[in-house]
Write a protein that binds this DNA or RNA. Sequence first.
DNA 1: AGCACTTAGATAGTGCCACTCTCCAACGGA
DNA 2: TCCGTTGGAGAGTGGCACTATCTAAGTGCT
Lengths: 213, 213
Amino acid sequence: MRLAELSERSGVPTATIKYYLRERLLPPGERITATQAEYGEEHLRRLRLVRSLIQVGRMPVATAREVLAAAEDESLSQNTRMGAAVWALPHGPEPDEDDPHAERAREQVDTVLRRMGWSYGQELGDTSPAYRMLVAAVASLDRLGYPHDTEHLLVHARLAGELAVADLDLVETYDTPPEQVEAVVALTVLYEPVLLSLRRLAQTEESGRRFKE
Amino acid sequence: MRLAELSERSGVPTATIKYYLRERLLPPGERITATQAEYGEEHLRRLRLVRSLIQVGRMPVATAREVLAAAEDESLSQNTRMGAAVWALPHGPEPDEDDPHAERAREQVDTVLRRMGWSYGQELGDTSPAYRMLVAAVASLDRLGYPHDTEHLLVHARLAGELAVADLDLVETYDTPPEQVEAVVALTVLYEPVLLSLRRLAQTEESGRRFKE
DNA sequence: AGCACTTAGATAGTGCCACTCTCCAACGGA
DNA sequence: TCCGTTGGAGAGTGGCACTATCTAAGTGCT
């Protein structure tokens, strides 16, 4: 398969594929001659994954490169690879170090992790992007004066835990470790919009039920 | 309060506040003289909300303007205002009209909405941004060959429903309709990163539990 | 009153990012 | 042979969220 066919089958313009190749989001094709390269099914698959991460998952190109690099780093154990991939996922602005709101948020997040018995979150603590993203979001709620008591956060944490179980069940339906790592990346990212849109639909539903006149 | 103080108390540069004023994300201050304006506590509050929507909620400026405009449109009923505000929330790329993946995704989403008894989602159907966002995400999963069977989506939908109940409970702790509408916007947007980061933490936890060697 | 400093408001410029265009030399099928 | 295509590289584009500059009109200290 040459560039034109890869482009046609994926729906991605050739100029964009060239850009992805340059940015190392896509491994180079097998060079046939000095000006010709051959691409396989795995290139098509990878290209579709990249497109999904960028367009559906709204992930920056540089981030997608890191995530994919971590996911296929042969020198890491499978668990480390999964961790590294989720680790590199996009996250918002960092919480301010000496902000009283962030300080309070940090304590509260620690309490939630402890109550959930999430030891990884506690051990990794401040170094984990997801942890910092959580602190920044809670700090923001605090700054705006919106409630975010531990009980309410625990409701979310418990539901997140259930989601994670369902997600990992799905991941385990794949047989080989490389497939599983790719599945974690794809499912983590692609189920995010699913979850957010379902929540918004549910809110519309619930608010219609409560405030209908 | 003048611009400089508003800037200092909010931590937002004066140049940026001027930009927000120009973009009508912030109502103009009360004009004292030809070159002087006075801002109140409500400006500070609004500015903090705008900043949160943009920075934590990663919302485009134009979208934030629409959301806020809908939230305070006096001519709408409260329920309509809440709906309109959530309606305007950012959503990804639109699903392709004549894409077989999108077609299948649409059917499946309809099934989920029916099984959940979410009549609003069904009635509004294709016109709702959240509905289209959901279809696009499911279509993407389909395109990549990842499973998204109805049972699995229903797990997410059920959990989203629980979240919505908890969210609306929180909203109802506010007394006046305007406060409630603002609360819906703020809580919908600001709990999104909370939910996503908790999910990632939970995944790390669960994957550590399963794949530890 | 004189004068340094600040303010609101408008306009133009910056930096980043995801492409997208243009060009070139080398193929390759008719 | 000849013309359209290919891979590769560099420059250009458009959108967006600011940010810097400028101007005319205040304000406060002496």
